[in-house]
Amino acid sequence: MESRSMDAEIASRTEAIVGRLKPLEGPLLPILHDVQKEFGYVPKAALPVIANGLNLSRAEVHGVVSFYHDYREAPAGRHVIKMCRAEACQSMGGDELGERLLGLLGVDWHGTSGDGAVTIEPVYCLGLCACAPAAMVDGQVISRLDEKMVTELARAVKA
């Protein structure tokens, strides 16, 4: 019963987003971005509403959601760390720092720690390649990461 009323809530809030963005040319990505902003992820219950609003099949919408790395099918942890794994960061020891961070948090890439404190995601380039290694923590960019900073970061997000 509770989940049904939650679904209804999701549906009505999604409907408002669809109604607002539908007039755009190619509205699906902007809608999904706003849905994710609204709920922190793209809930399953939102998909039929979007499909209906845009005259698409539910499968088509699901196909789009699952194609893009940004869209989450479940809520993220309280903090989100996006660690760059691309070449420029590799050249400055990014791989080792990434492994270290995973070890400290006890999660794998794309994982969320058991206490729900943090989700860690790989990202392929933040454009901070001249001051690598770089990461984005809750939307804030940080660069020239070293062991000490990574250790502090792990402590801060778990606190």
């Binding site: 040319e25 190619g26 509205p27 699906l28 990505l29 902007p30 999904l32 971005h33 845009l54 789009v64 194609f67 893009y68 790395h69 940004d70 869209y71 990202v123 392929y124």
Partner: peptide, 21 residues
């Protein structure tokens, strides 16, 4: 318009597909 984390969308035809939703 904001992308959604797919590298291949830097390829022009994939970008157009993405832009169209």
């Amino acid at each position: 318009r904001v992308g959604a984390g797919a590298y291949v969308c830097g390829e022009e035809t994939a970008l157009l597909e993405s832009l169209e939703g």
